[in-house]
Design a protein around this nucleic acid. Structure first.
Lengths: 117, 117, 117, 117
DNA sequence: GTGGTCTAGACCACA
DNA sequence: GTGGTCTAGACCACG
């Protein structure tokens, strides 16, 4: 995976994992790759992965079993809600950006349709 | 202005100025506020503003007259092009993010319409 | 049994067993459950239980008969003394914590009474 | 400061700072010592201090000004509430421990009075 | 100078 | 092997 500069890597890792979970590549209750595996795969330091996982643990989207690994929460309600939050966040940021560029709400849809062609 | 953490402030300042120019609050050839004024207005350090302006100078959207200040380029073609670039960039990022969240192209438009209501 | 994170499980097991002995659920001279039984009951690894028992052996509160198992010491003086030690330890930690939170000795009793209501 | 083994240092640092704030040694809005100062004073690594502060930031008890330092929140309601939480936590742990040692609620008060003499 | 992020490398607790 | 914590040292963003 490639990381953008200007955004902390651990946040990008969080985002990456969130998406893996949301699109179902990592299922509720499933063990995610070990910290060390992820570190190798993403070519970052173990600590950086840890930081991402620690926060996701705090947020309840993952849980840790000592000596076993990290697992995706089985709370599907939380997962669904998380997905909605992320989607709405993206929508919000997008609309706001377009407004800031002088594009009125009415124009956004047509620009989007044009873009998607 | 409020700044998001996790994104360098000087980038946010660049973005802010870009948008002021694009929506016409700062017109071609117009002098932009002095570094110190901006620093006060945005409650950031002068150095931080400097860094943003330097980069915008390099990008050609601003030019500096020694002892006078910074001015918006008069190259309206460049401005228009910049605007299109920024819009397309936003569109691209947005669509990509939605895809990453498991939202297919066809669904994006309806989600957007829903959101804009 | 549930274990707090941030405290080594083997210490929590020790504490658990100490308490079983002190409240008389495990009597002097009585054989305690086998390492494997405990491991299953507490849903921890056998090694972890072993470590706890080893230390309690060293402390004299348990003794091992090869091939038979672990037994609670018959030294009731030691048991009684251990109980007093643990109680005093708790009292000490508690008072110290309250002091550290700016609660003077005089206030502690009333806060406690209030809490116990 | 001396740290207990068996409890992560960064948690002990959090506790230490929480107490400094609660007893008023660090006042609302006041700047706390820099990360590096704390690291030296507590003879731990800068990163360890960072971890503690980061969490306290997330909890709202501190806030960071980039390039300036960390400051105690001015939200006195939050501070008062935090104090109550910590006290109740201590009370709860204490009573639970005593119960686990076979000491009934009624006896706790008298043991405490005895101890405080 | 002050905080934020990252790496490399080490040791511990747990299964 | 798996996660958790810590150190030493480095570089960046900001004031």
């Amino acid at each position: 995976m490639e990381f953008k500069d200007n955004v902390p890597i651990y946040l990008q890792i969080k985002q990456y994992l969130y998406r893996q979970i949301i699109i179902g590549k990592l299922k509720p209750g499933e063990k995610i790759p070990s910290v060390r595996e992820l570190a190798v795969k993403l070519t970052v330091n173990v600590n950086t992965v840890q930081r991402a996982l620690q926060q996701m643990n705090a947020e309840g989207i993952l849980y840790t079993k000592r000596g076993e690994g990290n697992f995706v929460t089985e709370d599907t309600t939380l997962l669904e809600q998380t997905k909605q939050n992320l989607i709405n966040e993206e929508l919000g940021k997008f609309v706001q950006s377009m407004n800031a560029l002088g594009v009125a709400d009415e124009q956004i849809s047509s620009l989007l349709s044009e873009y998607l062609k």
